[in-house]
Design a protein around this nucleic acid. Structure first.
Lengths: 212, 212
DNA sequence: AATTTAAAAAATTTTGAAATTTCTTGGAGA
DNA sequence: TCTCCAAGAAATTTCAAAATTTTTTAAATT
């Protein structure tokens, strides 16, 4: 089997989210081609699909760029994420059944385990990647019962853009950083399970406000 | 000058929004190619870009389809549009200056002129297209001072999807239909100019609720 | 020295065909 | 009759090169 275009997509998405390209850096199909052993047009296809998610900027006749970062854009992404996550959580609280509660509890359990490890052993290899995945799963589970495909899809797009903006932002990931995050996630899950919509919205805002 | 890829994009977007293709209908590059006198791959490129906006569905190895319509999806689009428009209007009311008020007034003036014409002469050629453009401009102006590129971009995408869902829905466009619409638009603009956020949100909801 | 213009280089888009995959059709076997 | 499989057809993806456009470079003019 040859190398699938899906793998190129995944690899580029991962690199884009890990800031392997400088923000605003030009992404030339002809250059990336070599790394994947495919034609330039195949890379072009993949980049076109990545621009759908917002990770890549595309302008006709002048190619692709890694999405630019700026404090303004960072705030914009954070604000929009708050809006979507608050709405998604509120709807999930209204619609969610026992199964949703169970999934949310499980996702939070996994996440807090990873986070406690990160506090005690901050430099363990792959720790951040593990955390990143667990965090994503937690937030997606939180809003999963909003029963709106559009909201879920948009949130997924915004989430990767959020990550892209964050990684390019210098930040000290000291242990007190993660201790705060742990408390914030706890507050969100507590409010959600208590079916307290307003408290949950506040908790989501508090969790994101450092990015505003 | 040859036919630009931008024109193919615009033409297909227009057709998609006017339900020139049946919902869920397959869109084969090889077939559309002939109509535009370009190669199949160029059409493919355009379809890939249209799937970015949500007008076209794309699935790897199995091509493109005109977006499917259903009551569920229609409701989903409407709900999401309410969320975005309420937030965008609220922010615009907070941020908007005199220039925003002026633009909003102008857009509404134009819109209500077209709408009154539509009531008195419902079958005039191109009336719906004129109304469609004016309506779009009005709603975009309403949220234009939210100062969030992401919100504006997402709204633009949702708006075309909304239109796509609406045109495929049989509806009687009697004169009382437009009379109701006129009142609703008036309520929105009144609340916005009065800087009454809550009233504006209610007016937006009332304007959209027939689609829920 | 600054601005314009012209030519060259580089990058992007488009093409037409080959390679691959998916879908369809028509038996063969149960 | 039904299911399964293979062969053929149709559709999609990939490729490498040609055509177009943009960007860069260097010279010429102001």
């Amino acid at each position: 089997m040859r190398i699938g275009t899906g793998e190129i997509y995944d690899d580029l998405q991962r690199k884009l989210m890990a800031a392997a390209f400088k923000p605003g850096e030009k992404l030339k199909p002809a250059e990336l081609q070599g790394a994947y052993g495919c034609s330039a047009n195949t890379v072009r296809d993949v980049l076109l699909r990545l621009s759908r998610v917002g990770l890549v900027e595309f302008e006709m006749q002048r190619g692709f760029r890694a999405r630019a970062t700026s404090p303004e854009r960072r705030r914009d992404v954070a604000k929009f994420r708050i809006l979507l996550e608050q709405e998604g959580a509120a709807l999930s609280i209204a619609n969610g059944d026992l199964a949703w509660e169970a999934r949310l509890t499980a996702a939070h359990h996994k996440l807090s385990h990873v986070e406690r490890q990160l506090v005690s052993a901050p430099d363990v290899a792959g720790g951040m990647e593990l955390w990143s995945d667990a965090e994503k799963e937690f937030h997606e589970t939180l809003i999963s019962r909003c029963d709106s495909p559009l909201l879920l899809e948009t949130f997924a797009n915004i989430y990767v853009q959020f990550r892209q903006q964050m990684v390019s932002q210098e930040r000290d990931f000291g242990s007190n950083y993660f201790e705060a995050i742990i408390r914030e996630h706890q507050a969100i899950v507590d409010a959600a399970l208590a079916r307290d919509v307003e408290a949950c919205k506040v908790a989501i805002y508090d969790h994101m406000k450092r990015n505003l």
